[in-house]
Design a protein around this nucleic acid. Sequence first.
DNA 1: GCACGACTGTAGCGAACGTTCCAACCAGTA
DNA 2: TACTGGTTGGAACGTTCGCTACAGTCGTGC
Lengths: 195, 195
Amino acid sequence: MNDVTRTLGTRERLVQTTSRLMQRQGYEATGIKQISREAGVALSSVYHFFPSGKQELAVAAVRHADREFADILREALAGESDPGAAMIACTRLLATYLRDSDWLDGCPITATALETSGRVPDIQQAAREAFEHWRSLVADKLRRAGIAEQDVLDLARTAINTLEGAELDAQVSHSEEPLQIAGRHLARLINSYRR
Amino acid sequence: MNDVTRTLGTRERLVQTTSRLMQRQGYEATGIKQISREAGVALSSVYHFFPSGKQELAVAAVRHADREFADILREALAGESDPGAAMIACTRLLATYLRDSDWLDGCPITATALETSGRVPDIQQAAREAFEHWRSLVADKLRRAGIAEQDVLDLARTAINTLEGAELDAQVSHSEEPLQIAGRHLARLINSYRR
DNA sequence: GCACGACTGTAGCGAACGTTCCAACCAGTA
DNA sequence: TACTGGTTGGAACGTTCGCTACAGTCGTGC
């Protein structure tokens, strides 16, 4: 049992533990028994709360990761008024989480989304919604900063995608540098669209 | 048996099939028996060529994917003299492969790299080398185009990372658009460093 | 005190996992 | 023809997988 145990409800503990495990190992490598063990929850309780099993739990975990990552993004974006500086703040925050977790906690859904690609539609759908959600947060920031509407959605898309790629690189390289570089380049790109 | 069968040597068939399966399903979801079945190779032959088993085969598959993706990148980069246009050519080629495979064939090593992160050092190392390899190809292109040396490595890093993120997005969204947008933005970013 | 729904503990199902073992096979060489 | 080294086919190992079944425990409302 860890911090998560005994403070939240059983169902919430399951979702949170699943989300963390899938972030680090992906969908296939994360077993139901491992989840119930690490969450301090009976195996039968998993099927009590998620009657149709692993997939249902995984979808709930992706949705949870969606909200959690959105909170991180929102926090980082809110701290800076300039949109370029806000992107740099994002990369700094992501780099901190990554380093502090010994390069284990990257994007919480990428591994799951990739290995279930074309095989588990429910999970795919949840992942698609998460990316869309995160993009909309960045788009809002750009819009408020006065970026022209015809550039906002595309810029937000590349911003999130570059963050994703840089975080993957940082995780594999065990280095914060890819994220720092991405932050600088994204700021420069966004500034080139300011009027 | 498919195209790969009976034309290449047994060992090469195994590596190629493993690479393709891991590209689509990741490491954990790809079974030794599935590999031997799809490659048209006896199960015992897997252990004949790769005595220490699945991990050793996976490392060989990642190295194979490294070379294969590098060929794609080299081809796309060579077709254009302008470095920005070359990046757009890359995104176009990746988008084509992705669409033609029904959005299944994205980056051949991302899924594997992520789900083995911090758990299978050999695979991690092979993935690290692959990313480094691909970066060096882009860096060469930028250098030859006259980008200042102090900008080359960072730009190459962000270019590869943005490609990775955009390809992930394209795969999840079932759309070529994220890659097209990334191409335009990368070209703009690189141009802003031209002298 | 009692009944009831929520949750747990345990045991076990069939299937698939990675791996091992070994006899059989099939070149090529002598 | 006999031998040899590389390769195969098939059976089986122990373990783990996702999942099911069911009796038992617990806190709450009557």
